[in-house]
Design a binder for these strands. Structure first.
Lengths: 194, 194
DNA sequence: CTTAGGTGAGACATACTGTATCATATGTAC
DNA sequence: GTACATATGATACAGTATGTCTCACCTAAG
């Protein structure tokens, strides 16, 4: 097995990237079932044996895709805005990610994570990035008094994030900025102290 | 192709049920990728050709499972309760379904629906049963004045249902009745005109 | 130049897929 | 009960996918 992270061999990195791009296209167009060693080899022009050398198992390809392409790694919003504005901005970034390629990869992974604990663990790791920022944001809101002190931030997070995933996964609907703004206004609004 | 709905041949219905049970087990244990004609045949003791006769395509088996096993067909709550109590009861039923087999089948289908429009259409049809009851409930709440007239019922539905799916699909967590009660209290509460 | 290691091309056994055939078993109508 | 229609079981089959292996060639690094 070849680990492109270990060495800096440019040949390895080149091949790895070409194959991964092909795998991403396959996933995007035909779903996770289409991401096989054979089809990645055909689509990328790489020898079939080489695909096996980089990823011994089929799931490894998908895990690699999840690492590289579906980072819900959102940047923290500027601090001079109000809490509601910062939460709105953060969720709009999350919504944009869900509307794009990340949403598709995530959809595939959710189906796999139910029966593959490696995929589930990877999903957990990815999930930590985005929502943690939101959690910090809400915690700071309680600290500085802009959020009512008795607010259940865990539940509030579910209520803010849940509808976004619901619309993306079950409804296959794009999430507009207006929707996010409306969502924040109705759910975060009653928790604000003034 | 054999349609068990068309005729009443007991032999057909028996075989169909045995195979479908095996398919359900396969899905539950190993995921949708394991639901193949070959493995259904082996698991049910039926000839491989017979499995093809009942479902020419692999997806047909999954669609059949979705029809039979994952009905989120919830019963409407009694009318002598308050709106909040009725919404809570309805969502607790939905949560119970998500906690059980239906949740697992649903998880598989969400992954497939992204790339298979037949599965998506079936999912849409199923989705219509449960949430429609909630929609009716909220509409009646506006009619009889227990809900503020300016309430956005579409958004409220997303806020009530979204967190349940979020916890089930992404967090793999059981949804407790307490969680549902808490959810309804914080999200529906501010909309009540008391 | 030399060496170590990655790649391409192909061979190979095995397994899975989809279809076809025919004898047997089952259900239905008379 | 007999006769007919249909479903099933068993098997064969070609085509394809899977996973591993070998060896000649190429690339990167000292």
């Amino acid at each position: 097995m070849i680990d492109p992270e270990a060495g800096t061999n440019p040949q390895v990195q080149r091949t790895h990237r070409v194959m991964l791009d092909a795998a991403r296209d396959l996933l995007s167009e035909n779903g996770p079932g289409a991401v096989t060693h054979l089809r990645v080899a055909e689509a990328s022009g790489v020898a079939r044996a080489t695909v096996y050398r980089h990823w011994p198992d089929r799931v490894d390809i998908l895990l690699d895709l999840l690492r590289g392409g579906a980072d819900l790694h959102l940047s923290p919003p500027p601090e001079d805005l109000s809490l509601a504005e910062r939460v709105t901005g953060l969720l709009q970034n999350l919504a944009a990610a869900l509307n794009g390629d990340s949403g598709q990869i995530l959809t595939a992974m959710i189906g796999l994570a139910e029966w593959d604990e490696d995929v589930f663990a990877a999903l957990e790791r990815m999930r930590a990035f985005g929502p943690r920022l939101l959690q910090d944001l809400l915690a700071s809101g309680i600290d500085d008094g802009s959020l009512a002190s008795h607010t259940d931030t865990d539940l509030l997070m579910d209520v803010l994030i849940g509808p976004l995933f619901l619309r993306r996964l079950l409804h296959h609907a794009k999430i507009t900025d207006d929707y996010v703004a409306h969502l924040v206004a109705t759910t975060l609004g009653p928790c604000l102290s003034r």
